[in-house]
Simulated assay, not measured.
Amino acid sequence: MSAARTDATFSPPVMAARRWIEGVAFPDDRPLINVSQAAPVAPPPPELRREMARLVVEDPGSHLYGPVLGLPALREEVARHWTRAYGGPVAPDNVAITSGCNQAFTAAIATLCGEGDEVIVPVPFYFNHVMWLDMAGVRMVPLPTGDGLIPDAGAAAARITPRTRAIVLVSPNNPGGVEYPAETLRAFFELARDRGLALIVDETYRDFDSRAGAPHDLFSRNWEDTLIQLYSFSKAYRLTGHRVGAMVAAPARLAQAEKFLDTVTICPNQLGQRAALWGMRHLGDWLAGERAEILARRGAISDTFPRLGAQGWRLLGCGAYFAYLEHPFDIPSDILAPRLVEAAGILLLPGTMFRPADDPAGARELRVAFANIDKVGISTLLDRLAAYSPA
């Protein structure tokens, strides 16, 4: 019997990590600090929930099939926002709404790759991207990033082969948190354009970028033949359970993506789309406050990290929802992380979940997703890490 496609990849990392806390009791004076998953655990703001309740009762369309590529009004709203934010033309027919950003990625790969093709991915990587490449029969070509976790276009150029179809970038980055400089994105865009490749830029965390203004100028270029941008409404409006994302690309590519999307979900979640549209129109100030809070938490990690630095820890990257750490212990991170559950009351993910199995760097790395802990919680987290000793 031949192996199934799903045998080609690893188990979902977040689900694997959740099993570490099964049967573990956490005392009242040291509750679990869960920094394993990059998703808001709070519901949408009250005004958005009230609007969603109204839609459930009053809008029959929120319960029916809709267009495969998404609600026209939401596509138009994204196009308006993106044109204003990035300073380049994005039209409604450049926008597809998907069932979350992960589905946008799978759809993009479906339009680009066949069996045995290659996609260049910086490491450490976002594991769901690699899981899909594995299951699609596409070879992931790892691109080391080194200090600063910023990939280099020249290094990527050396890894291009006749089977290369795309380069994938995530900025702000998951798992590293770093924001790729505009010149880095421009260099990758020019490389992809010159080599006839697609550049997939996942900007799931764009709403929490610390920089003022557009993080890049790619939409102000002749972008349609090269750029595919991915986005998620989940983080901005706390709509994780409603699964609403977006793919911005050339209309011809979206026509191909429509074939894939129609066979998987038929259409995106209707209630979630309407909620995202209402959020884009009414929650600008609220979202600005969410961004300010995330940036304050980022600052709290950077400001207080020296207490760990004095013990040999390194802060490799920090931003958006993430801090990416290098630990000082003579123990692999995939053994250390489960031990931290009982020994320190911390659930986080080991770097081995974000690198190829033969990459030794992952054994020294840990990812902290800090979106759901406040500054007090961050201080407690760092205190517990500072107090931990494997001896």
Rank of each mutant, 00 (worst) to 15 (best):
residue 267 C to R: 03
residue 346 I to P: 07
residue 123 V to L: 05
residue 214 A to K: 03
residue 130 V to I: 11
residue 40 P to M: 02
residue 189 F to L: 05
residue 233 F to G: 09
residue 71 L to Y: 06
residue 307 R to Q: 15
residue 36 S to T: 09
residue 189 F to V: 04
residue 54 R to H: 13
residue 45 P to V: 15
residue 290 E to K: 12
residue 238 R to L: 03
residue 186 R to P: 01
residue 178 V to N: 13
residue 141 V to F: 10
residue 76 E to G: 03
residue 104 A to D: 02
residue 104 A to Y: 01
residue 358 D to A: 14
residue 174 N to D: 13
residue 28 D to M: 03
residue 21 I to V: 15
residue 163 R to P: 00
residue 357 A to W: 12
residue 76 E to K: 01
residue 194 D to H: 03
residue 65 Y to F: 10
residue 328 P to V: 02
residue 151 P to R: 06
residue 6 T to G: 04
residue 115 E to L: 14
residue 205 Y to T: 12
residue 251 P to G: 08
residue 86 Y to V: 02
residue 280 M to S: 02
residue 235 K to Q: 15
residue 256 Q to Y: 01
residue 245 G to R: 07
residue 27 P to V: 08
residue 249 A to F: 00
residue 330 D to S: 06
residue 134 D to P: 01
residue 96 A to E: 05
residue 355 R to L: 10
residue 116 G to E: 08
residue 180 Y to W: 14
residue 96 A to R: 07
residue 51 E to D: 07
residue 88 G to M: 02
residue 203 E to N: 10
residue 213 G to T: 07
residue 196 G to Q: 03
residue 261 L to F: 05
residue 241 G to W: 15
residue 45 P to S: 14
residue 376 V to Q: 14
residue 216 H to S: 07
residue 56 V to R: 15
residue 6 T to H: 14
residue 279 G to D: 00
residue 52 M to E: 06
residue 21 I to Y: 05
residue 207 D to S: 14
residue 134 D to E: 07
residue 124 P to R: 11
residue 356 P to W: 01
residue 202 D to K: 08
residue 371 A to T: 07
residue 255 A to F: 03
residue 294 I to S: 12
residue 134 D to A: 14
residue 87 G to F: 02
residue 143 L to A: 05
residue 227 L to N: 03
residue 164 T to G: 06
residue 224 E to I: 01
residue 377 G to D: 05
residue 237 Y to I: 04
residue 294 I to W: 04
residue 180 Y to G: 13
residue 137 G to W: 00
residue 7 D to I: 01
residue 1 M to W: 06
residue 382 L to M: 13
residue 377 G to M: 08
residue 208 F to N: 07
residue 92 P to C: 06
residue 85 A to P: 05
residue 292 A to F: 12
residue 377 G to P: 10
residue 104 A to Q: 01
residue 257 A to N: 08
residue 317 G to D: 04
residue 163 R to K: 08
residue 140 M to L: 11
residue 33 I to Q: 03
residue 83 T to R: 04
residue 199 L to R: 11
residue 270 Q to K: 01
residue 349 L to I: 09
residue 87 G to Q: 09
residue 288 A to S: 13
residue 343 A to F: 04
residue 375 K to C: 15
residue 247 M to P: 03
